[in-house]
Design a protein around this nucleic acid. Structure first.
Length: 571
RNA sequence: CGGGAUGUAGCCUAGUGGCUAAGGCGCCUGCUUUGGGAGCAGGAGACCGAAGGUUCGAGUCCUUCUAUCCCGACCA
């Protein structure tokens, strides 16, 4: 491709809405344009990178027997009613009506459609295992789209779905996809970690996320310093030993007046006790039912763990009115003893490490002290519902400590079981002629997000540093003195030879000064720059600059094609 | 959805209630220049987010709407 005819434009200025490196650089390099909040045009540079990412995914999936299909972006409500998600999905699902007033939505994911597609064809166990995937535009009406392509409302996703005879087979399919994802991100030359993950609203009981490591990542990951344990902060478990409470210190309960003291800080300051010696009581709405959650005052409730433990679809902190009717007191005085309404109580296991806590009295302006969790109340559930922390023991090997990383979730694999196949009646006949429900898994890669995360992880002050495997172009030929026939002729010849050799190459034939072109090349991030200047060409050489290291080498013109191909293998 | 902020040319910004809305980047023409975002000269490009209102007079003040961004809860 010649620069003079290429549809792109670079910018020196940073648009004020762009905050994060990938967003700024994709805009400055002329890769994307915003059309609306969270909705972008992909210009040729971006599309080239996207296609490369897509092709790597295709190759790795096809190699493992997956088959590509294409499902519609527009989906009828009936299917979502069948799975039950029309009710549960919430406003993130963009719904609309057609001219006949029928309900439709833009697909945020395709479990319903793919299950429907599969059940129309699946009749026999002989057709399994089956794994079908697509690469397609998804729409999720995010509350807050941000960071350019990192969290768009419209985005490109590869989604795959496996169907198996049995749970054991389904877990094999899951493992195969786990391997495929490792292969995909390894080929893209990204630094990433597969991590244990919470399953969220999609459900199922086994899941891993693939996290590209980057400082700007929105997710926190805890990873063992010694073994391979690695988990999302939502899921990570502390391996620290629980202490045993010293019950000889038990004392009688006492009610104390704590006028206007509501927060942990206020109460612990007022009563002159450590925050850890308070039992924080938070009222949540779990699938619309109030639940009291108890954690030590120095801990945070981990909503993902609570949701997973209770097998709930949704969990949100209760509004003030609910809190008042449940506790009979103003917000800030809730406690496990003497709740006005009988509701489910779930306690973190750490509260049994001590005795003599303070907690709300369910009476405005009063707290109870000297509380002993074993003696004074009986929660319905005791579980790990707080966050593991950096420095905690590893729960797996008990030897290493947990280290914290930030990551961008670019892929996730889920074991679904029969969550969709059962309600949607996706069945087949087994070898004994008995009807069985297919066992499913689902597997996503955010394609556009992967592109953004590659930039997020690989850039410097001058621009993008593409891994060669997903760069829009592998190399740029940059002639310096355009009106010098020897220079321009050499550049064109190198360009043509590289194309013949199958290298994805860009010729910057624009009538601009050298510095201008160098800056653009650094910004766009070609892994290699082939600089053709009269000084080198007189010696039969050209300069090759490696974007990643900044290193420049003089290379004989006659060997240039081979040299470039060899260098690309290292990038 | 709660909290905060901002809408002036393709992009970044300036603009005390007062004449024809200013500058930089970018764009077009000409000359010059060609190894790290060149110089000179000329030129095009804005109903100042929208609608109301206050005022002799509104980019500037008020109201409503709308869009965008940032901080929180969701997700690839």
């Amino acid at each position: 491709m010649k620069a003079s005819k290429f549809f792109f434009k670079t910018y020196k200025e940073v648009p004020k809405e762009a905050q994060t490196p990938s967003h700024i650089l994709m805009h400055r390099a002329g890769m994307i344009q915003k059309l609306a909040s969270g909705i972008y045009n992909y210009l040729p540079l971006a599309l080239r990178a996207l296609k490369k990412i897509e092709n790597i995914i295709r190759e790795e999936l096809d190699k493992r027997g997956c088959q590509e299909v294409l499902m519609p972006a527009v989906q009828p409500a009936e299917l979502w009613e069948e799975s039950g998600r029309w009710k549960y999905y919430g406003p993130e699902l963009l719904r609309f009506k057609d001219r006949k007033n029928s309900d439709y939505c833009l697909g945020p994911t395709h479990e319903e459609v793919v299950t429907d597609m599969a059940r129309k064809i699946l009749t026999s166990y002989k057709q399994l295992p089956l794994n079908i995937y697509q690469i397609q535009t998804k729409f999720r009406d995010e509350i807050r789209p941000r960071f350019g392509l990192m969290r768009g409302r419209e985005f490109i996703m590869k989604d795959a779905y496996s169907f198996d005879i049995s749970e054991e087979d389904a877990k094999e399919s899951y493992k195969l996809m786990y391997e495929a994802y490792n292969a995909v991100f390894t080929r893209m030359n990204l630094k990433f970690k597969p991590v244990d993950a919470a399953t969220g609203a999609i459900g199922g009981d086994m899941s891993h996320e693939f996290q590209v490591l980057a400082e700007t990542g929105e997710d926190e990951i805890l990873s063992c310093s010694k073994c391979s344990y690695c988990a999302n902060i939502e899921k990570a478990v502390s391996g620290n030993e629980l202490k045993k409470a010293d019950l000889s210190k038990r004392k009688e309960l006492a009610e104390v007046s704590t006028p206007g003291k509501k927060t942990i800080d206020e109460v612990s300051g007022f009563l002159k006790i450590e925050p850890a010696m308070l039992i924080k009581t938070i009222i949540y709405l779990v699938d619309d039912n109030p639940v009291a959650v108890l954690v030590r005052g120095n801990e945070e409730a981990n909503e993902a763990k609570i949701q997973a433990f209770l097998g709930a679809n949704a969990i949100t902190p209760a509004d003030d009115n609910t809190v008042k009717s449940v506790t009979g007191a103003e917000v800030g005085f809730a406690g496990p003893i003497g709740l006005k309404q009988k509701i489910t109580i779930i306690a973190d296991r750490q509260i049994y490490e001590d005795t003599g806590y303070a907690c709300g009295a369910n009476k405005t302006d009063y707290h109870i002290t000297r509380v002993d969790p074993e003696r004074d109340f009986t929660p319905a559930h005791v579980a790990d519902i707080t966050f593991a922390k950096e420095g905690d023991r590893c729960p797996n090997c008990k030897d290493g400590v947990l280290e914290k990383y930030r990551g961008i979730e670019v892929g996730q694999v889920f074991y679904l079981g029969k969550k969709y196949s059962a309600p949607m009646n996706c069945t087949f006949l087994d070898s004994t002629g008995k009807e069985q429900v297919a066992v499913m898994g689902c597997y996503g890669i955010g394609v556009s997000r992967t592109m953004a995360s590659a930039i997020e992880q690989n850039h410097d002050d001058n621009g993008i540093i593409w891994p060669a495997a997903i760069a829009p172009f592998e190399a740029a030929v940059i002639p310096i003195q355009l009106n010098d026939e020897a220079v321009f002729g050499t550049a064109e010849k190198i360009y043509k030879n590289l194309i013949t050799a199958g290298v994805d190459v860009f010729l910057d034939d624009r009538n601009e000064r050298a510095g201008f072109k160098f800056n653009d090349a650094d910004l766009i991030g070609f892994p290699l720059q082939i600089i053709c200047g009269s000084r080198s060409i007189e010696k039969g050489k050209v300069e090759v600059k490696i974007r990643k290291t900044g290193e420049k080498k003089e290379i004989d013109i006659e060997n240039i094609t081979e040299t470039i191909k060899d260098l690309l293998l290292t990038l």
